[in-house]
Nucleic acid binder design. Structure first.
Lengths: 200, 200, 200, 200
DNA sequence: CGCTAACCGAGACGGTACGTCCAGTCTTGCT
DNA sequence: AGCAAGACTGGACGTACCGTCTCGGTTAGCG
């Protein structure tokens, strides 16, 4: 049931948490790049050697700290209406992106462009789960006949989430409630004037 | 009309080009982060002091080098069909994103998450022009009655470009031709099963 | 008579010997400075905590390991001739200095320059006994009238042993048999051309 | 005549001196082992990177700092008497060994036991010159008939200098004036009771 | 045609963070 | 109690890169 008692002094849970807490604060105060391992060590009272023993570099710490904060996964709203479900998920996401966490997330994505490890971690822990949730919502809507069954689900998810990321990372326009509603509305309704226009 | 003739030796055009060429090579070979000013100086035969005299830091060099390569702006296809115009523009963009330039662009966007200056330069020189082009195409489609006139053009552009950026930056799915066509097809046709479903 | 039986598990003699044996090997293979407590622990199968429980630091382990190897003290030759006695002692010493033990000894002396404890241990266990032996030989020679009775015995011992240490520690010349004989011969005979020259 | 003007900014002589001065102070205050490169950088106002550019490690800095302090080489007394010449040189040396410089020198010799580079530097700059001076004095004494011509000069020098080093490094007895005189007196006069005793 | 201002290559420099290493201590649970 | 295993603090190490700063030498174009 519990972990097999391994010999030797066990890893200090308190140290782990102090490090993650300190990293979390620094991420908000200074940002990912400006945060230094040294400062994490100072704030947390945990020595640099210990930090490097458990994490390969500050980005790994940042990701774990960031994930720890998200606590619970975003819940599946399941309102009975595909449109409302989608809006629910996306609004939650937009709210997350708009706050301090959004900046940190964006910086992690940025780092991921040059650091494969960061990208993989992000993919596994932050991107995939959200795509999966959206996929669940999508499949339900299709099953109920509210959403098109001739659209590749991956494409559909990209169409719903892509614009948010685009705004978060390029920052050319806000991510407020009206914007979200307009984006989702247009994604569902389509951009072409005539339905017949679509013939893929 | 032309530059007022200033006293003293004029800036060396050859140095400028050597630097940009060297930076360009390094961007492809090593990536944005791994590229060092020192190495640009070595390869170009231009001293670090001169580089710092004309550019504030290596990111400015990278952006200028990167822009110089793009040469001509993407042209407006203007085929007579809004759908074809959009496909033309997006296919060109996807091709660009899929190559080596795409990686560099992604790294620049990544850097922009922590560096306001980089973000602003990207916005001005790489993001805005493309949005503008897409906007032109969009407006023409609306005028011809092929595209909806009740959708905010900014939202429409986000819907068309967002999924591409999403795939480029998160890398969860490819950016090949079939994917592009599916994305654009779905964006135009909408995700909802019934047109009436849309009522924004 | 025997040790008072203390409560609890007694110190493991086997651990002690494993540590000393491992330290001994490492001293020869890597030298005093490069030898780490960690490695002693690994090789000996004795934990670092146990090592630090019984020795204050790695130098103490090194000294004890080193002493253990010397086993028997150098014997007093007592040949009947002071000259031969001196040569016997010094030759033994030179032989010892010339081998691997000599390097270790030199490194310990080196460490003693910055670490008082090491210096004191060396003094007590390695330097004093040899000086004492040499002093015994000296006194016997004086008593027999072979050696001068107007020379401070400490000075005499320094004169006989000093050149050896000098060669060991500065390494400017070898410590082979002819060199030893020449040194002792000159020390006994004196450097001045005329005996009368000496008038201290 | 002067150095050929090499391109680039010349090495800062001021930095060099600041580093050496700071190292010198620290050697006296803290000793060789306790002195850190970091602290040299702080005191001197010279960055660590610059220090590591010009010296491979703190021991190289220490040696250069130490040598710089010795300024002039010890002069050849040349009094006309070999005995007086020897006494002059040795007394100067003993005085040097007895002071703060002596401790530093001893620590350097100690370090030299584990670090070949340090040993070589010491040999070249501190040991060899003194042996050379002593050799000069020796040869003159031999030429004048005051010193024995049947003793290997290297052995003679070892006999004169060895006991000093021995006392410096093992610290079993002082290096004061009477000790010096006794040592040199005995070295010249020899330890054997009868001159005939010597027959090497 | 020579003056002079601005250019430029070479490379030293201060600063800052990095990631590593080792000494020595502390904490488990087993023997 | 002793002990193996191994986590932990503290602090120095040497490296790397950034952006600034001298040097000496070069190169327009004005006077």
């Amino acid at each position: 049931m519990s972990a097999p008692p391994r010999p030797g002094r066990p890893r200090s849970e308190q140290s782990r948490q102090s490090v993650l807490r300190a990293a979390s604060e620094l991420l908000r105060e200074a940002g990912l790049r400006a945060m230094t391992t040294e400062e994490i060590a100072n704030r947390s009272g945990v020595s640099k050697a210990t930090i490097y023993k458990w994490w390969p570099n500050k980005y790994a710490v940042a990701i774990e700290a960031f994930l720890g904060e998200l606590m619970a996964e975003a819940p599946d709203p399941d309102t009975g209406s595909a449109r409302e479900d989608i809006l629910g998920v996306i609004r939650g996401l937009a709210h997350f992106y708009s706050g301090a966490s959004g900046r940190v997330f964006a910086q992690l994505v940025g780092e991921g462009q040059s650091d494969t490890t960061v990208a993989a971690e992000l993919q596994a822990h932050l991107v995939a789960p959200r795509r999966a949730l959206m996929r669940t919502v999508w499949d339900r809507g299709v099953a109920r006949g509210e959403l098109r069954d001739d659209v590749d689900p991956d494409v559909a998810v990209d169409l719903l989430l892509g614009p948010l990321l685009y705004r978060l990372l390029l920052g050319h326009a806000p991510l407020d409630a009206p914007a979200i509603d307009a984006i989702i509305g247009s994604a569902l309704g389509g951009l072409a004037a005539e339905r017949a226009y679509h013939q893929n």
